[in-house]
Design a protein around this nucleic acid. Structure first.
Length: 289
DNA sequence: AGCCAGGGTCTGC
DNA sequence: GCAGACCATGGC
């Protein structure tokens, strides 16, 4: 990877395995918005980002300083992890080969633990467009407004002590009381999310599931997306379909240990299965000629 | 109108 | 331990 300052931003070249559509719009994060020109705007750690994909391996981070890149975005986009090597291992499995061919540019983002906890509590029995709406209203109602527009993600103390009625503007339904319980536990120190980085995963799961509204699936999402525990494996209705259809005997050995990252590829693949198959067919025709 | 959405809780067996 | 009702909301 190559980093250089360029016209009031950061120009990245030779970035491997990163596609903005595949990574920012694949259901792992809910605060990035696609702009009409294909670029994305989002806010992480109270810092705005406007990122453009100029080519397959080239990106422009408009308005980003070198320091912001080093302290936030390098980490957020998981640029220290060698995805090429991981994907080489995944090639052993037929379904993974197809998933990787369909969307080779997915990275698992390193989101903030608290934000991941809230957004995946909101995600339960819900669909992605509506999750984004609730999250946006949550930030507008309780997040700190930022100088250039937009809002920081609300902190636990910003809703601590509030009632479900106070959160009614979110239209989050029965999930409001779960957000309040999460805030309560984090604010009082009963739950220290940073401890989950190093805790044995089974213990981390047990701790997280003491929060109301956090069961096995939400728990593994928080571990994977909020704490980068890539051995977590969230199973939702879509991944259930993957397991029934492709892995009735269990998940393949080549994804063991990093099954969280494989899960993101599989999730994206099964959700777009029809398009993926059409793409496969088109590729077959070309190679047959 | 009824079903589904990146599920979980609570109750009853 | 496991099934089933119930939970808010909105799009299709």
């Amino acid at each position: 990877m190559n980093i250089q300052q360029h016209r009031g931003g950061i120009l990245l070249s030779e970035v491997s395995c990163l596609n903005l559509d595949e990574t920012l719009d694949c259901g792992q994060c809910f605060r990035f918005e696609r702009q009409d020109d294909g670029s994305y705007k989002g806010i992480v750690r109270a810092t705005p980002l406007h990122i453009h994909q100029l080519g397959e391996n080239t990106f422009f981070l408009e308005g980003t300083t070198q320091e912001e890149f080093e302290t936030i975005w390098y980490d957020y986009f998981d640029l220290s992890l060698d995805y090429e090597q991981l994907k080489k291992r995944y090639q052993e499995d037929e379904t993974m080969r197809r998933a990787l061919r369909y969307a080779p540019g997915i990275r698992v983002l390193r989101q903030e633990p608290w934000e991941a906890l809230c957004t995946f509590i909101i995600s339960q029995n819900n669909n992605i467009p509506r999750i984004k709406g609730i999250v946006a209203r949550f930030c507008e109602a309780f997040g700190t407004p930022l100088p250039g527009g937009g809002y920081a993600f609300p902190t636990p103390d910003s809703i601590y002590g509030k009632t479900p009625e106070d959160l009614s503007v979110l239209r989050a339904g029965f999930r409001a009381k779960y957000l309040l319980d999460a805030a309560n536990r984090v604010y009082t120190g009963q739950l220290v999310l940073e401890d989950l980085y190093t805790m044995p995963i089974e213990e981390a799961r047990r701790v997280l599931q003491t929060v109301k509204g956090v069961g096995p699936k939400v728990c593994d999402c928080v571990l994977l997306y909020g704490l980068h525990r890539i051995d977590a494996f969230p199973v939702d209705v879509w991944i259930k379909r993957v397991l029934e259809r492709f892995y009735p005997q269990g998940i393949p050995a080549c994804i063991q240990g990093t099954q969280g990252i494989a899960q993101q590829y599989l999730f994206h693949y099964i959700r777009h299965l029809e398009q993926a198959q059409r793409k496969e067919d088109a590729l077959c025709e070309v190679t047959a000629m």
